[in-house]
Design a protein around this nucleic acid. Structure first.
Lengths: 338, 338
DNA sequence: ATGAAAGCGCTAACAA
DNA sequence: TTGTTAGCGCTTTCAT
């Protein structure tokens, strides 16, 4: 029926415990024995039972990816990260559970316990804005659950992966300035996301560098959604001196801006330059194609997961890894009119 | 430390087996005993160990959602289904593992075994095109793993959920005919997806009903991707008599058509009407907003999962459930020119 | 460097 | 309707 550890032990002529040691890559096994055991495992097609390992030991070879889908409607950003997490899992024989969490209420504590206590989850990958949920982090530490974060707001002593979003945003805005734009609007994201803060800071610093004033009127709050981009754009269009360019804090909102521009009879990029952030697939599917910053989401998911698995293996590693971004200059930005 | 089943038994004054029976909702327990046990479980905050249950029994309270991400760049569809699956899991105290599978190669057999054998997966939710992977289905039956399908191509005797895509497509094309269009192009999807077949049949039947000929020149193959939509549209534009309307088999390709139209200097809907299928978020984010068919993906994921869980509980239920669609008539379609 | 015994928390098969 | 006994497949002591 099922090949068990004991079967491998018998076939190799060693004790079950020795096979267990080989399985868990414990050092105290002679090279010769290890080879024989590994060969037997392979030829017998032995596959250890996660349930048994989870029961007897404390590991489960399972990690969870936590995300907040209340604030993140079916975003391709999360889907990409998930793909990256699964990439890393596959090459390391781990499995992943996807776990949407609503940060509101105490429900998420219950769900977290269900994961950690019940399923013996080995570790979790945190996505924004869960990377900075105070109760969440406290609970994880309490249960001693390893975790890696993607783009955490507070990065001090945190394991994970990030991007220099501030610098990327500044470069993007500098590009607009270089095109002759002087009135540049900005639509921010949800305040609790670090991304909102960094991108705004980048925007402001680029203006300052160019010797332009930062006029609060030109900064309108958004919520990372298409609809909020439309609304914010309308607000900017209604200003006495409407901006000749708008930097939206993500692609969804930038798409909203382009939509609103179309509806208002403004031609992009002739009358208005628009740029976003993230480089989701949508960016190249808009007309004109959207100028934006490419964020390697899948790669970030993969790296964060590798870091998590490294920590589970006891490797002491660097903390936050920074991945490179790329400016994608496309048709939605052009020289300022007049 | 941890509250175990035995602790509950002791507190209630019954045997562990009786508590186990209550836990598994077996009928052979007196109502009075059941109440006492349930009360104790609650007050003691008892949480059964999935690992132990998986080891001893054969259930794991875990299901897997299988999808093919090599062929499915339109990940928002899958993400929505995943949300629906998780909705159903949450209310039924099940957990879900996301499992991307590449249908090519024998790799997926190994991965399937890893899920089913190793993790004692209770059941799987299948998404297109995995719903019709012959080896996959054979393997599932061999392992006696319950499964529910979403939009399977071959629906005979299959548990799952579907939509009358043929009729929806026909209605959509009839809408175009009603607007005066006579040359209507169609871009198909990947052949292995039932969706491609059904939508094409709907297209052809609507033309036939309207007394229009089905001209093969006007039917161009696509791959459900934005890029393939662009390419197919260019092909249609190059025809001696280019179509005045194009029905793309999904929204991504429709977006590609609109992109190509823009690039070719054709105004939508003045010069060209465009419609898609699925009603992904993108549909309302294009300009003009895309006429399409709303497919309740999240709800379909939820229903398929509920059916799966029902089957796991031994409920004998109807086979394929049909969910209703809705035509979304928006700005991308208008009266035929001239 | 290797092994023996006990047990992780639960359910199966049997009994009563 | 309820209880008893024996494991599920692995890892933990602790020994050697």
């Amino acid at each position: 029926m099922r090949v068990r550890l004991e079967d491998v032990a018998r076939a190799t002529g060693v004790s079950p415990k020795t096979v267990s040691r080989v399985l868990n890559e414990e050092p105290s096994v002679s090279a010769a024995t290890r080879q024989r055991v590994l060969a037997a495992m392979k030829s017998m097609n032995y596959r250890p039972s996660p349930a048994a390992r989870g029961l007897a030991g404390n590991r489960s070879l399972l990690i969870a990816m936590l995300y907040d889908n209340s604030n993140n409607p079916a975003s391709t950003y999360l889907a990409e990260i998930q793909n990256g997490v699964l990439d890393a899992c596959e090459t390391n024989r781990y499995s992943m559970m996807a776990c949407p969490l609503r940060m509101l209420g105490k429900d998420f504590i219950r769900r977290l316990d269900a994961l950690v206590v019940d399923h013996h989850i080995d570790g979790v990958v945190l996505t924004p804005p869960l990377t900075d949920g105070r109760k969440l982090l406290a609970r994880l530490r309490e249960h001693k659950v390893a975790h890696a974060s993607i783009c955490p707001l507070h990065s001090k002593g945190v394991l994970g992966v990030c991007m220099d979003e501030t610098r990327a945003a500044a470069e993007l805005v500098a590009h607009l300035v270089g095109l002759g734009h002087r009135r540049i609007g900005h639509i921010t994201g949800i305040a609790s996301h670090g991304a909102s803060r960094w991108r705004r800071i980048g925007y402001e610093s680029a203006l300052a560098t160019a010797g332009l004033v930062v006029d609060p009127q030109y900064i309108v709050p958004g919520e990372f959604t298409f609809g909020s981009g439309v609304a914010a754009a309308r607000q900017l269009f209604a200003l006495p001196q409407r901006p000749s360019a708008i930097f939206a804090a993500n692609d969804d909102m930038a798409a909203g801006v382009m939509w609103a521009a179309n509806a208002a009879g403004l031609a992009v990029p002739r009358d208005l330059s628009v740029c976003g952030f993230d480089d989701t697939p949508m960016a190249t599917q808009l007309w004109p194609p959207l100028t934006t910053v490419h964020q390697p989401s899948r790669e970030m998911g993969r790296i964060a997961t590798l870091q998590l698995l490294g920590q589970l293996r006891g490797l002491d590693q660097g903390q936050l890894v920074q991945v490179p971004y790329t400016l994608q200059l496309r048709g939605s930005t052009a020289a300022a009119p007049g």
